[in-house]
Every structure is written in C-alpha cells, then in structure tokens.
C-alpha cells in the first residue's frame, strides 16, 4: 500500500498508524501523529487504519520562536 509519510511516498505492509511507525522505525514515544490533517492520539494509533493514498504526518519537538 502506498501512503505519504511526512510528504514522501512509502510502500508499506502495515495497515494502521502504530504498525507503520514500527515498520519505518520511528520512535513512537517521541512523536505525535496526524492522518489526513486529523490528530491521531498515541492511544488510538493501533486502531487508526490507513488506506491507499493517506497522508501520515509524524512530528517531533523542535526549536521554535
């Protein structure tokens, strides 16, 4: 299944957010996630199914003003 992760297309085997994070080797404890512009809380990642063409955003803390 092809999905966009942080703006780049990835071919993933996993079908939910939690498993995609594992597959792409993100540290799930250090990030926040959103799918198609909607926030996905950490506790809901395993239930949040992904479909072809979905846009997953994985954000981490960063310096800011």
């Amino acid at each position: 299944m092809k999905i966009s992760v942080n703006g780049k297309m990835h071919n993933v085997a996993a079908h939910n957010v939690a498993h995609v994070l594992e597959e792409l080797r993100f540290d799930g404890t250090m990030v926040a996630t959103a799918v198609n512009g909607e926030f996905v809380p950490a506790v809901s990642r395993a239930e949040q199914c992904l479909a072809e063409g979905d846009r997953l955003e994985v954000l981490r803390p960063m310096q800011g003003g």
């Binding site: 942080n6 080797r25 540290d27 994985v58 960063m62 310096q63």
Partner: peptide, 23 residues
C-alpha cells in the same frame, strides 16, 4: 521557552537529530 513541532525523519531507529537534543 517556546518550542515547535516539525517532521521526524524516521529510519535508523528514529534519529531526532538537533530536535531531540534540544528537547
């Protein structure tokens, strides 16, 4: 202090780089 959120690069165990060190 203020902070922001930006895209995580992922891969190789999830290197947070400067952002991780900052946090």
């Amino acid at each position: 202090v203020t902070a922001s959120l930006r895209r995580e690069s992922g891969g190789s165990g999830g290197s947070g780089g400067a952002g991780e060190g900052f946090w």
